[in-house]
Every structure is written in C-alpha cells, then in structure tokens.
C-alpha cells in the first residue's frame, strides 16, 4: 500500500509537471502548477522532510500560485484588451 501510494504520487508529480509545461493553455498550466506544488508538499511529507513540506506548502501552494494567477490576469487582460 505504501508502495502504491508512492508510485501514484511519483507518477502524478511527473504527469502534472509535464502537463504544466506542455499545455498551450495558460490557465491550465497555472492550475497544473498549483497542483504540482501541492503534490510536491505531499511528497516531501512522505519523504519525512516536514521542514521542506512546510516551506513548499507555504511558498509553493500559497504564494507562487497567487503570483502566477496574478500574472495570468495581467497577461490575459492585455491580450484580450478588454476592460471589464
């Protein structure tokens, strides 16, 4: 069961990383990146490295996600040229 968990986690990490790099749609890429951050926090927790899991949860899931979403908003607005 532990093996299944780890294998699934590893696969999901690779897959989400690949999707966030390869998808042409920016929203999807950012969402996949946030997902990747969360999975990474789980992976660190699984590796008995709660120090890094904590930092990853705070920086990866909280700050970076918000930052990317913000950039996405600025970018989308500029490209669409709309002012809601």
């Amino acid at each position: 069961m532990n093996l299944a968990f780890d294998a699934l986690l590893a696969l999901a990490l690779l897959w989400s990383a690949w999707r966030s790099l390869a998808t042409p749609d920016l929203t999807r890429a950012v969402v996949m990146f946030i997902v990747f951050g969360l999975l990474m926090a789980l992976a660190w927790a699984r590796l008995d490295a709660p120090d890094i899991a904590l930092a990853e949860a705070a920086i990866g899931a909280g700050l970076t996600g918000a930052l990317l979403l913000d950039a996405l908003g600025a970018f989308g607005k500029r490209r669409a040229g709309d002012k809601p």
């Binding site: 929203t27 899931a61 909280g62 700050l63 979403l69 996405l72 809601p84």
Partner: peptide, 15 residues
C-alpha cells in the same frame, strides 16, 4: 493559505 490562491484567482486572474 488555501484561501489566497482562490481569492487571487477570482479577483485578479479571471477576466
């Protein structure tokens, strides 16, 4: 910190 991404999304990213 979960709220931050959601709020940032609704307020900043989704136009």
């Amino acid at each position: 910190l979960a709220a931050i991404t959601g709020v940032a999304f609704a307020r900043r990213a989704w136009h």
